[in-house]
Design a binder for these strands. Sequence first.
DNA 1: TATTGTTATACTCTATAACTATA
DNA 2: TATAGTTATAGAGTATAACAATA
Lengths: 177, 177
Amino acid sequence: MSKTDSAAAPAPEGLMLPVPGVDYGLLDGLLGYALRRAQNALYLDFHRATAAWDVSPQRFAALVLIARNPGMRQGLLGQAMGLHRSGALRLTDWLTAQGWAERRDAPDDARAWGLHLTAAGKRRLAQLEAAVAAHDRTLLAGLGEQGPALKAALDRLAWVATAQSTTPQNKPRRQTP
Amino acid sequence: MSKTDSAAAPAPEGLMLPVPGVDYGLLDGLLGYALRRAQNALYLDFHRATAAWDVSPQRFAALVLIARNPGMRQGLLGQAMGLHRSGALRLTDWLTAQGWAERRDAPDDARAWGLHLTAAGKRRLAQLEAAVAAHDRTLLAGLGEQGPALKAALDRLAWVATAQSTTPQNKPRRQTP
DNA sequence: TATTGTTATACTCTATAACTATA
DNA sequence: TATAGTTATAGAGTATAACAATA
């Protein structure tokens, strides 16, 4: 279909690090802004680490999820990644267009697909996982002793922010509003 | 003049929290994925905290920057926020369309603008800052003792990731402080 | 009637490239 | 020649809505 199937430069944004001479006001003290800066830097760094394949973090995550949960539905993939069904569809379309994933009939539900990685997808994932894991180890090494604590604090932060914004019931999944 | 000038629902994405029964493989152990999850949760939570005004984190940051650096150029605004010139243009266009910012001639360079907040922009910023600061305090309170350490670790992480990806000779835009 | 996936469409964000007007 | 900003366009990502097939 499209000729931009394989690699289309997923729009790497510019750096958000503090510019000397600019007063950031309360932004410099906000947890949320620090998080955004860090995520921006990591996003760019992820691209560098996986430049040979040009796969976005999201597509990489989808590969991992399908590999670890063979036969999972598109809807579940979207749910796990915070995507709408239509987004999960486009993501799956892209993966199948690469020849890395395929849709098979779900055994228990004729409406649904079961997602599986192809042999090529498994090989590509193995390469990506090696690069990403090495990349993450380098980051952790750069953080020193703070690393593991940071990871734990981030997990907790995601939970805290969610607990705030959702009603007292623990309902992380999205329901019809 | 679009009719969606004031509020256009900046696409709040779904939650990315772990779905029970789904195996996330190495994603669960990655610093980068934890960061993405946390940022996703905070993004949604920011929207909740500022729902009364419907201003995105980026637009809020632009307001703060202009307020603290009156007369700053569009280009510098973009640089501080990791945006291309065209992105800084559209951001400024939006702010001026709201009546919150205005372009004035730069005294020293006839090519450039100096950006300033209007009185309405200052009032709106004051409201937003109060809401955002309260929101951030709530997050910190939820984190307890980990909070300040997390903030420091995030600042460091952004620096570590950038130091890695920045090649010695290729200077992206600016130098590290 | 509800759910799974699809199709079609629209909107946001960001980037590139060519253009102007200054420097 | 280089820079600040603009214009036009393209691409990725996400959402909504209506639809078909199945539960």
